[in-house]
Every structure is written in structure tokens, then in C-alpha cells.
Lab assay of single mutants.
Amino acid sequence: MAASAHGSVWGPLRLGIPGLCCRRPPLGLYARMRRLPGPEVSGRSVAAASGPGAWGTDHYCLELLRKRDYEGYLCSLLLPAESRSSVFALRAFNVELAQVKDSVSEKTIGLMRMQFWKKTVEDIYCDNPPHQPVAIELWKAVKRHNLTKRWLMKIVDEREKNLDDKAYRNIKELENYAENTQSSLLYLTLEILGIKDLHADHAASHIGKAQGIVTCLRATPYHGSRRKVFLPMDICMLHGVSQEDFLRRNQDKNVRDVIYDIASQAHLHLKHARSFHKTVPVKAFPAFLQTVSLEDFLKKIQRVDFDIFHPSLQQKNTLLPLYLYIQSWRKTY
């Protein structure tokens, strides 16, 4: 089996927390979720979201995140109150960019949308954001926290390059993509939290790379249903696996070995980020709550012996909000 052949990389499970039942964490995340308004986002309300009498641009960002990046939404709820709305805006910006690729039928249209967001970032730093909910909220975040323009532009530029429907040539190319998107998002989150620390940035770099790799793995069944495969070609070739094997949902050992190798790289990034947690300011830990969902996925895929098409991998963990709150309460990542 794939797991038994390579099992030495995987460390002990961390979500089991001995003695936790003896201490009762304060009510927090679930209460916040219940208090949030929840009407559906419609095209009509989106168009009017920044106008008078609408929910408001902040509510639009929150709803977009809740629907399109639920794990990011849950993590954002546990940030300090003064930072929450800015991170909602930042993550909503990322969602807007991420959904361009799947929402257009022609690359030219995707490039036009990316050009809109490039100009939007430029206009935000000229205090002239367009009348668009996410743009307005992002402008507020930039003004409030003096966010670095370079990180925002890196996210747009990398998403634009990724409009080509090509597999990553190697794991390094996937890591570079993750660094310029997910890690950049974390650098900006640290700025919102008021953290300027080399060790925190180092952790953000590795956690962002782990996030990018896990996202690529999780999306494999969806991409396969659209006749697309984006997994690193070098690892596929190493194990003699073709793109057609993934399109046919082949579950042979060599296919699972490909998934094992890729998942192991995410695991190593996560492990390395945690190896120097004592040197990272505690104030930075809330920015890294996504490690909970990353670890949850890596454990699940290990349990199914790296069968990327196993139905259990597509099921939401209903206990994730609780695990996130516990992680926040324990002040760790």
C-alpha cells in the first residue's frame, strides 16, 4: 500500500487533545456564526451592495467568503475584532481572482478581468477605488493598515499566469505559485494584525505553500471532471502515471504514490512551519489557523491510503469550527 511504503514521513496525529474535556472553552465561534445575517447573495444585490440601503460592502465580502471560501471565513471569524473586516476584504479579493479561471470560457475574457483587478489595485493606492464592493472594502483595508501593494499585485499576476490550462511542470513550480498567492495572502494578513517579524514571515511562507499544494490536491477530482489535470508532471512521470490515469480515476498503487509524494511535500512544509513556532510572536498565530484544515485533509487522505478520489475527501468536517476554536484558544498553530 502507498501509505505503508512511505509511512515514515507522517508524524503522530495532533488533533487529539488529552485532558481537553476537563476545561470548557468559552463560547465564541458558534455564537458569532449565529449572529451573522444570512440572506442569499443575488446578482441584483451584488450590483447594489455598495449603494445606500443595501447590506453594505462589508456584508457582501463576508457573504462571498462564506459561500466560496468557507474555511477562510471560519478562520477570519476568530481574528481580533479590529482586524476582521480587513481580512474579510482581503480574502474576498482572493476569491474574486480565484473564480475568474473557472467562470470564463475564453482566456481573453479572463485576461480582461485580471486587467480590471490590476487597475483596481492601482486605483486603490491612488484613493480612487471603483464602485465595486470588494474594491471598496480592500481600499478601506489598505488605508487602515498601510498594506504593501507588492503582495496584492503578486496575487493578481500569479492568478493571471495561471489562466493557462497547463499542469505544473514540477513541484517547485506549484510551490512558486502557492508562494505568490497563498503566502502573499498571509503576509498581508500579518500586516493587518500589525506583525512585522521575520520568523512570522518564514512560517507564512511555508504554510502558504502547504495551502497551495493541498488546494491543488483537493481540486483534482473537480478538475478531472472537466478533463483537466494540474498535478506536477515530474512526480507523475517518476511513477509512470499519465494524465489519462487521473481522468479515468485510476486507483492503482502508482497513482496513489503520486498523491503521496505531493501530500508529503505539504506535510513537510507544515511540519517545518511549526518547528520554530517558539520564535514566532503569539500575536501572529491567528493568521495561521488554516493549519487546522490543512492537517485535517492530510490526515483524511492518509486514512484512505492516498486515494484522491475517495468520497470521504469531499465531505465537510462538521467539527472544523470546534477544532479551529480550540486551536485559537490554545494559542498555537
Results as ranks from 00 to 15, higher is better:
Q115C: 09
D69R: 01
K143L: 05
S184Y: 07
Q99T: 12
Y323Q: 15
G224S: 13
E158C: 11
K172Y: 12
D102K: 05
V214C: 15
H59F: 11
V282F: 08
P281L: 02
S183I: 05
K300Q: 14
C236G: 02
R256Y: 03
Q251P: 12
L319Q: 10
A263W: 06
P281N: 08
F93D: 03
I301E: 01
G194N: 10
K196E: 07
K271M: 11
L74P: 00
H131K: 14
K107S: 14
N317D: 15
L147F: 05
Y60A: 09
S312V: 14
H272L: 14
S85L: 12
D307Y: 03
K143N: 08
T279Q: 13
A200K: 00
L298S: 00
I136H: 14
L231H: 03
Y325D: 02
A219R: 04
H199F: 11
M237N: 13
A178N: 01
E137S: 09
I136W: 12
K101T: 08
S76W: 04
L247G: 04
T215F: 06
V280C: 06
A263S: 13
D58N: 08
D257S: 12
T332A: 13
S103N: 14
Q327V: 05
D261I: 05
A49K: 15
N162H: 13
L185P: 00
P286F: 07
P311Q: 09
A48G: 13
L62C: 12
D102S: 10
L97F: 01
K316M: 09
A204S: 05
A89E: 02
K283Y: 09
F246Q: 02
Y222S: 07
A178C: 15
A284P: 00
E122N: 11
D307F: 03
L147K: 01
K196F: 06
I308F: 00
H267F: 12
V134C: 14
R227P: 02
S205E: 04
A89I: 02
Y187E: 00
M114E: 03
E191I: 01
R113N: 08
K196D: 05
F306D: 01
G208V: 01
Y168E: 02
K331C: 10
I326G: 06
T318K: 06
Y73K: 01
P130F: 03
D58I: 08
S264D: 06
I124F: 04
Y323V: 11
K119F: 03
Q327N: 10
K118L: 04
R249S: 12
E295M: 10
C126I: 15
E160Y: 14
M112P: 12
E173N: 06
K299I: 10
Y125P: 00
G224T: 15
R66W: 07
H145A: 06
T120H: 06
P232G: 00
K316C: 10
L313S: 02
N162E: 07
Q327Y: 11
S293V: 14
K278T: 11
R303S: 12
Y60L: 08
R113E: 05
A48L: 15
P286A: 12
D127K: 06
D234N: 06
A89Y: 01
S50G: 09
Q314K: 07
K331L: 12
V46N: 06
Y260P: 00
K143W: 07
F93S: 02
Y333D: 01
E63T: 15
D102R: 05
N180R: 10
F297N: 06
L64Q: 08
S242E: 03
R150Q: 07
C236W: 03
I301M: 08
A210L: 01
K278N: 08
A89N: 01
H223G: 05
R226W: 10
K107N: 11
Q182V: 15
D245I: 06
A98I: 05
V258Y: 02
D157E: 13
H272M: 15
R91T: 01
V280H: 00
H272K: 14
S50R: 08
K140R: 13
M112V: 12
L289G: 07
N146C: 11
L238H: 12
A204V: 01
A266L: 01
P52V: 13
I235A: 08
Q243P: 04
P321N: 02
D257V: 03
K331E: 11
P52W: 13
G51E: 06
V214R: 02
F285K: 13
L77S: 03
E106S: 12
L152F: 12
V100W: 06
D305C: 04
H202D: 04
N94W: 04
V121G: 01
V292D: 01
D197V: 03
L186E: 01
K149H: 07
K67L: 10
L298T: 03
A98V: 09
I171H: 04
L268D: 08
I195W: 02
L163T: 07
L185A: 09
Q251Y: 13
A54M: 08
Q265S: 09
P221I: 10
H267E: 07
K278Y: 08
Q265R: 13
E244K: 03
A92W: 04
L186F: 11
G110M: 08
A284I: 02
L147G: 02
C236K: 01
D123G: 08
A266P: 01
A219Q: 05
T57S: 14
I192T: 13
I262T: 09
A266G: 10
L324M: 08
L319R: 13
V95N: 05
C236Y: 01
M112A: 11
S50Y: 13
C216N: 10
T318W: 14
P311F: 06
N180T: 06
V134Q: 02
C216F: 07
I308H: 00
A263V: 07
T220K: 03
I192E: 00
L313A: 04
R159I: 05
L65H: 02
G72E: 06
L186R: 03
P286R: 07
N176V: 13
E295D: 11
T279P: 04
Y73T: 03
A284Y: 00
V258G: 02
V282N: 09
G194M: 03
P130A: 11
L289C: 07
A263C: 10
D245E: 10
H59L: 10
E122P: 02
T291R: 02
G240P: 01
G51I: 07
K300M: 12
Y168W: 12
D58G: 11
C75H: 14
I155N: 05
V282I: 09
A135S: 08
D123R: 09
N317E: 15
H199T: 13
L77P: 02
I155K: 01
L65F: 06
A48Q: 15
Q99S: 12
T189N: 06
Q251L: 15
D305M: 03
I195T: 10
A273E: 00
Q265N: 11
V87D: 03
Y168T: 09
K331F: 08
S242D: 03
Y333V: 03
A48N: 15
A54L: 12
K119M: 05
H277Y: 08
V214E: 02
M114V: 11
V156P: 01
R248D: 04
W151M: 06
R169Y: 12
